[in-house]
Amino acid sequence: MVLVYLDQADQQIKKASIEALSYGAAIAKQLGCTTEALVLGTTQEDLTSLGMHGANKVHQLKNDALNFLDVKVHATLVAAAAKKINATVVVFAHNINGKAIAPAVAVRLGAGIVTGACSLPNTSNGFEVTKTVFSGKAFASIKIETPIKVIAINQNSFGLVAYNNSATLEMIDLPIPTASIKITKVEKIEGEIPLTEANLVVSGGRGLKGPENWGILLDLAKALGAATACSRPVSDSDWRPHHEHVGQTGIQIAPNLYIAIGISGAIQHLAGVNRSKTIVVINKDPEAPFFKAADYGVVGDAFDIVPKLTAAVLKAKTN
């Protein structure tokens, strides 16, 4: 049986976890078994509706002490649940919380793990899963050699799949370990789309010349409903907040669309965005290395092109 751990924030199941559920259900189909999901903490939504994302059964441990992540507590509980319901494959989203607990769960289950997975398992010769390595510059096929398998699936690599299952909800009873950390403060960036969950991202680099010029980029982002990001020199110069920095040392993202404005495309920047499905590069230097990694390119002055693109987006919306 496949067990999918559903991560939540603000009592809402995260998008990345819904995708992990779709992925887990596809594995269950391959293996000819059922898909069950585990929710730790309290939630506001109707969990039986998760059937349409592939769950046959949802287990919930309702306790609001579990609404915030405590790796030691959560990993112990997920491992205990997996044992209780005899899971043979345990699936996580490879998001911030999934990364934090999946490896600990694997150890507690004596299971081999693949994190950053980007394919369904190949079961023709054992159990092999492909993952991204070298910061998205290559793939590795990893054979899991243990009876129980743990997989953390990359965000936005499998997509959401519609299923016709009707899920039942069951309360699971497990002893909750003593808290090992205490959350004292949660600071949210209000009103913005979290970068790692965004489908569309508009990003700016040094080519925009200064923070006072970000208006054209913000207008485009608003027209598209996109999140905003920036390159490292931009966040290092404090033109934009650090949480917007995408790249090797910043956040790694894989949106459907990444629009890079005035970013030359250094290899460290590409490492953070090369898993984007479609890349648009706007740069006045036709030799900018980013064009080699792009699907669409516009050579020219960003200050001229970006407002035109915004206008074109708005025009297409009203049509």
């Binding site: 990993a75 990364k99 507690r108 390595v133």
Partner: peptide
Amino acid sequence: IDYNSACIGSMLSA
């Protein structure tokens, strides 16, 4: 930055 697995800290905790 080679295998990008982000496993060691979590595994050590278990």
